[in-house]
Design a protein around this nucleic acid. Structure first.
Lengths: 361, 361
DNA sequence: TTCATCGTTCAAAGCGATTTCAAGTTTCGC
DNA sequence: GCGAAACTTGAAATCGCTTTGAACGATGAA
């Protein structure tokens, strides 16, 4: 049933019905109630295709999921992020459009979404240090929000990010406090903004204690389980292995744990691990004492925040760009302990060494 | 720029331009080339909102992601499935609409998609043994395809499923052949069709060897890492622990492995594990010898197949319903070995026992 | 009583494409 | 060279809604 017929059936004009349904103030309360009740009873729902053409609004937010040929993997945090964002879209009557494209076609995909008029705004995932998409979307005049940041991008834009630098410097400091001096870093792909910030946080903390960064202990790659396994194997098989490892996600951490087990090395006593935990719904690092010591920040919550900001900015509720910097809390788990050297000291009863670990050599 | 203006600029009527762009045969090749080239040059792209109203087609496929309050988790296979399906949609010029809703609102969400006219078809995820959505979509007259099956549903419908029963009976037989007699099953949520079929396959294989199913060895739940850990702990801590475990997904299998390690039990020698592997992109069970012995079937490929079938059925290319039953191959990994009892025999040199294991008691 | 005002309602003109139906132009056989 | 058939093109209707501008009746002030 279309508007015309519905309006006719209840003895009103399409104009009035439309206004009643869309909450315009010109219709009397009596009429509005009648319209709403009749719509319910007769099962009338406005056709969105027509409404979108008439209003010029798509009532849809776009997300683009690029798949690269080389490492064709879907980021495991994607689904949780989408769940968070999608929840908010639903509440506001927006739809979510997801485009899966080959990554060399990504720019074209944004352009396409914009010119075809199928979305009112988009979310940028996985920004690089220097990300051309920000410039592109500005040029297209399409509202957007970035999940993460792009350090080299100039100008203002909406973003929601974790304080990656702080999280990783804190985690590193924590390990240093435990006496660790050789600390590995299994990071995300080179060029990703978050990976760069995490590397910097790690580097800062080391530098603050006068420790040189050993390139043999730093890895970047796509965060699969196998990647965590392979890099951990490599580090622990080397001449001068680390006593602790920072890992950018719980997925490669599973691989790292597997490597430790295969090598018969104890997690938390012989080698410590601190991860960054996105709080994935199917992979919770929880329990009385969580498995991993972790810097945690819910990616689902980040999705919600991105959605809220983008919707606000589309509705024009606010002009200036918004930024949210989420602090990751450092939760203590079972995967960390004093460095072997430190343990040695402890065993000799010099417990205060742990309390002022930076006084150690 | 809209059609009218574009047509005017290149000295043609909107009619002709529309036809040229949409590949209708009535326009001469010369004109079509001119239109296509001008569109490229002037940057004209038809507005999809208008096209959708005019054609009555949404050129969009809907997916609904329900989140339950109790176990609010996003199925980890979701993103890989979507990646596969989305790939095909893009190729055919379709968009993908994703609705995130609370699970008690799921039926309403389908109804809404249908009456608002925003999708031309939908994919049903995670069907239950008796799934009301099939009836609902039939009533709504909305084309659909089910990823999985619904055993109790009557009538024909499109589906793409893994031969879960066969996969699990084969896996069980394989373990039986290795001499295992107490075999645990860590399954998906009760009521899910795939979980029921897997349970049946497991039960069939046991029955064929005259082994009674022990309810203490069968678990159903949402497939998180922690679930795998907890159930494994429980089984192995019991009076009469299993020597082998079947696990419905690689995620809980990670938890199971953690449990084994915590208990100091060797994986593959003391306790064997066979998993069902959806071949998730960020969690590949690969290598010269894969970590886990597994029944494998790519969920991404299933996504592609679902998309193809649904698109065909929307385009009316075919009337009858289509079914695809994917066979999962059983790949040998490092997580299985002869049962301890069997190992005993082997050590005594009775190697042929392994070759004809069903002759054993 | 009259007129201005306010609150409601409606007719009709969009939104920007597609598609029907009619008309104009070629092509081709005889 | 003519008429029919085959190609091409275009004018206008249509999709189902929103929204502008006008009209209507009721209300209240003068």
């Amino acid at each position: 049933m279309n508007l015309k017929e519905f309006a006719h059936r209840i003895g009103l004009s399409p104009t009035t019905v439309s206004r009643a349904l869309n909450g315009y103030p010109e219709v009397s309360e009596r009429t509005r109630r009648k319209v709403l009740e009749s719509a319910e009873r007769l099962g009338y729902t406005p056709n969105s295709r027509a409404a979108r053409l008439a209003t010029g609004r798509a009532m849809t937010i776009g997300h683009i999921l690029p798949l690269s040929k080389e490492h064709e993997m879907v980021n495991p945090i994607f689904s949780d992020f989408i769940a968070g964002a999608g929840e908010q879209y639903s509440k506001s009557g927006y739809d979510l459009s997801l485009s899966v494209v080959r990554d060399e076609e990504e720019a074209e995909a944004y352009r396409d979404l914009a010119t075809r008029g199928v979305v009112d705004g988009v979310v940028i995932h996985g920004p690089k240090v220097e990300d051309p998409r920000i410039r592109l979307l500005r040029d297209l005049d399409l509202p957007f929000v970035v999940h993460g940041r792009s350090s080299q991008a100039h100008g203002e834009y909406n973003w929601v990010d974790v304080n990656n630098r702080r999280a990783f410097s804190r985690a590193t400091e924590f390990l240093l406090d435990l006496g660790h001096r050789r600390i590995g870093l299994i990071n995300g792909l080179d060029g990703m903004d978050f990976a760069t910030r995490r590397l910097n946080g790690y580097g800062d903390a080391l530098a603050a204690r006068g420790i040189a960064r050993d390139p043999d202990l730093v890895f970047s790659g796509e965060m699969t389980e196998n990647y965590g396994f392979a890099t951990t194997m490599q580090m622990l098989g080397s001449q001068n292995p680390p006593t602790a490892i920072l890992i950018s996600s719980i997925i490669p951490a599973m691989g790292a744990r597997r490597a430790l087990h295969d090598l018969g090395i104890g997690l938390g006593d012989e080698v410590s691990i601190v991860i960054h935990d996105d709080d994935l719904s199917y992979f919770r690092n929880e329990g009385d004492v969580p498995i991993f010591t972790a810097t945690r920040s819910s990616v689902r919550e980040a999705g919600r925040l991105c959605a809220d900001i983008l919707l606000d900015s589309i509705r024009g509720a606010q002009e200036e760009r918004r930024h949210v910097l989420l602090e990751a809390d450092l939760t203590l788990g079972q995967s960390t302990g004093p460095a072997p050297a430190m343990r040695h000291l402890l065993e000799r009863g010099r417990a205060e060494a742990l309390r002022r670990p930076h006084t150690l050599t």
